[in-house]
């Protein structure tokens, strides 16, 4: 909690323009020069909030999918769920749809993608890991190809609005409020569900034997994870590997209690993306990097390490 507050504060004080922490504080209070206020309130704050919410959404979505699949390699990006949401959102842009309807389309894309991946690989027991990953990778590749196709077919004036779906990017994020509107209630809902999820993580049969209504819980988690992914994608494009890295690191530190892991994922995921985005917008400023570059650079080694350890 403290760390996440600190990371937000740090992110707000950092930028391509140097502002003293005092100047930032004044701007937040509505004092100081108009320019500083604009910089902090209009540019940095929304972006930092968007980054934090995106990270939180993705990390929770990842943690939920890992429970659902009982596989620590599950992640919305790796499994192509983000890709599905991206394709649907791109289609929405091409059709001239925006706002909530676009988020809705992204949600349907995410659900479709999840259905595909889970349907093709979920119910196969212990041998499913390889199959799951292959299914996810192939589906992600398919979505990638569709994105390229849509970009190639799009009229030129729509392309700048579409490019960020290629790799997660917060440069374009302007409305973090939808993401927060989803993230906060999600965390609240998950609190009482945490114990049921703990049981579900031990397998559907075990969970049923301990009194969990497995079917409806699985369906709920499944829809929730899709929703979280879709909102994250409409906020920042497909930022990769957050859902993989964060729950993994937290499990190493906090153990496996989902009542802890899920809210902690929201916080830690928020921190990670906030810091990654701070890096992305300052490291070679004025050139800006997509935040997805940074998370992927963190995520790929983690993924390979997990795979290598073979405890799957």
């Amino acid at each position: 909690m403290c760390v996440s507050m600190l990371s937000v504060v740090f992110a707000i004080t950092q930028g391509s323009v140097n502002l003293s922490p005092y100047a930032v504080w004044q701007a937040l209070l509505g004092q100081g020069s108009g320019l500083n206020q604009t910089l902090v309130l209009e540019l940095r704050l929304p972006r930092v909030m968007a980054a934090f919410a995106t990270g939180g959404l993705l990390a929770v979505a990842g943690a939920l999918m890992q429970i659902l699949l009982r596989n620590p390699l599950a992640d919305p990006y790796v499994l192509g769920i983000s890709g599905g949401a991206s394709v649907a959102a791109l289609a929405a842009i091409l059709l001239g749809i925006s706002g909530f309807l676009m988020s809705g389309m992204a949600f349907l894309g995410a659900v479709l993608s999840t259905l595909l991946v889970f349907g093709l690989s979920a119910r196969l027991g212990n041998t499913a890991t390889m199959r799951l990953l292959l299914t996810g990778v192939v589906i992600a590749a398919g979505w990638g190809a569709l994105i390229t196709l849509m970009l190639a077919l799009a009229p030129p004036h729509k392309i700048p609005g579409m490019l960020y779906w290629l790799m997660g990017d917060l440069s374009y994020a302007s409305t973090p409020w939808l993401a927060w509107l989803v993230l906060v209630p999600t965390c609240l809902i998950l609190m009482p569900l945490g114990r049921s999820l703990n049981v579900l993580a031990r397998g559907p049969l075990q969970a049923a034997a301990l009194g969990v209504n497995v079917k409806s819980l699985e369906r709920f988690v499944f829809l929730l994870a899709s929703l979280l992914t879709a909102i994250a994608v409409t906020t920042a494009g497909s930022v990769g590997f957050v859902g993989l890295v964060i729950p993994h690191m937290l499990r190493m530190v906090l153990g496996n209690d989902q009542r802890l892991i899920l809210p902690a994922s929201a916080l830690a995921g928020g921190c990670l993306v906030t810091l990654a985005d701070t890096l992305a917008r300052t490291v070679i400023a004025p050139e800006q990097l997509p935040v997805g570059v940074i998370t992927a650079l963190l995520g790929v080694p983690t993924f390979l390490y997990l795979l290598q350890r073979g405890r799957l």
Binding site: S16, V17, E287
Partner: peptide, 15 residues
């Protein structure tokens, strides 16, 4: 410079 045309450094631009 305020970055590449595809990804502007808005902060620097505004400042």
């Amino acid at each position: 410079s305020v970055g590449s045309h595809t990804r502007l450094d808005l902060e620097r631009l505004i400042s």
